[in-house]
Amino acid sequence: MITPEYCQTMARYNAWQNTGLRKMIPAMDRDDLYKDRGAFFGSIMRTLNHLLWGDMLWMSRFDGGEAPDPDMGIEDSFDMAPTPAVWAADRFRMDARITLWANSVHAVDLVGDLEWYSGAMKRQMSKPMAICVMQLFNHQTHHRGQVHAMLTAAGQKPDDTDIPFMPEDA
């Protein structure tokens, strides 16, 4: 279904997209970042924090590393990083973690089921690993799309988001 090369490409894409955001977000006016813009999570920062939380949660399931505080559910994820500068630093580290995982994943690691307890569903889950990995990358793209729209509405000019235009060195 998916390959290690898919994971590596999507990890590169994630890091490329977030590099642009990490340059833009800390320089923006705080009111613009926290303004409720009618998106699912409201503001740019709430959406970026939720995405960081989701990446950390999925990566903990994939690599066994650090997970968000077990008491921090989706509704608490919006305030994960208290400032844009902290978000940028945490995002940089998370993107490196995702890239490291993607560069070390083997085809056999993408086969079989992943089991975990879902706080959102309030039950034990079991799904094919490949589906879970696709969820990580799809979730990123979905919420970054929301952020892109909110940034545009705030008068910013986010970078291109098309995968074919990703620089080779990204």
Rank of each mutant, 00 (worst) to 15 (best):
M150G: 01
G155D: 08
M121I: 07
D159A: 15
I131F: 00
Q17R: 12
Y13R: 01
K35H: 05
P167W: 07
C7S: 05
P70I: 10
W101A: 01
D29G: 06
D32I: 01
M94K: 03
I44Q: 03
M24T: 15
L21V: 08
A85P: 00
A85D: 12
N49H: 08
P84H: 10
D113L: 00
D71G: 05
A27I: 13
G64A: 03
A96N: 11
V105P: 04
A102F: 12
H139D: 08
V86D: 09
H50P: 02
D29R: 09
N103T: 13
K35N: 02
G155A: 11
H148Q: 13
L21E: 06
V108R: 12
A102C: 13
L52R: 02
V133Q: 05
T161Q: 00
L48P: 01
R22Q: 10
T47R: 09
G112T: 03
N49P: 03
C132V: 09
T99M: 14
M125R: 01
E115T: 12
I98Q: 01
N103D: 14
N14T: 14
M80Q: 06
N103P: 08
P82H: 08
R97L: 10
S43Y: 02
Q135R: 10
D31Y: 00
L21W: 08
R12G: 04
T19I: 15
Q156N: 06
W116H: 02
L136F: 12
S60R: 02
N103Y: 12
M24I: 15
M24W: 15
A88E: 02
S60V: 01
N138S: 09
D90N: 05
S118L: 07
W53M: 05
Y34F: 13
L136P: 02
V108Q: 12
H106R: 14
A27Q: 15
V133E: 06
L33P: 03
Q140S: 02
V105I: 13
Q140G: 03
D69M: 06
Q156H: 08
A170G: 05
R46T: 13
A96H: 08
W87S: 03
K35G: 00
M28S: 10
A27T: 15
Q156A: 14
Q140F: 11
A89C: 00
H142I: 04
K35M: 07
A81P: 04
P26E: 10
